[in-house]
């Protein structure tokens, strides 16, 4: 006597495959470069830099004023009213773990990608 018949195995396999499909998001490591912009601790923009086709800029609506420019696989502070301009001088962010911040405006831009040589940078 066989424990399971052919169709039983098919149904059980289907259940297992469905479970695996549901689990895929947990294991999948995205190679996309994601930029997160936070203003005063609130996540305001999440931008997939890998899928940017045409460069654009936006105002962060902060005081002092700050402008961020987004390009394919790059993001940077293109203008800021702050006195030291450290944010603008940071230049283009293109790799995982890089951050730029305009401290007076409380704007932080950080990049994240699963494909990276390191998890976090000490500086």
């Amino acid at each position: 006597m066989k424990l399971l018949k052919k169709n039983d195995i098919l149904v059980i396999s289907a259940v297992l495959i469905l479970c695996l499909v549901l689990l895929i998001p947990s294991f999948k490591k995205s190679d996309r470069l994601i930029a997160t912009v936070t203003v005063d601790g609130v996540q305001t923009y999440v931008i997939d830099l890998s899928s940017v086709e045409k460069a654009y800029s936006f105002d962060t609506n902060t005081t002092p004023k700050a402008e961020i420019t987004v390009e394919k696989n790059a993001i940077y502070f293109s203008y800021a009213d702050c006195p030291d301009k450290l944010c603008v001088n940071t230049g283009k962010l293109t790799k995982n773990g890089q951050t730029a911040a305009c401290l007076p405006a409380k704007v932080v831009v950080s990049l994240k990608s699963a494909k990276s040589d390191f998890d976090v940078l000490t500086y």
Binding site: T36, T38, D40, G41, Q43, T99, A101, L103, K106, V107, V108, S110, K112
Partner: peptide, 10 residues
């Protein structure tokens, strides 16, 4: 994940 400005830093 969270990022914010405090203590004069990120």
């Amino acid at each position: 994940n969270k990022s914010f400005v405090a203590m004069g830093t990120v």
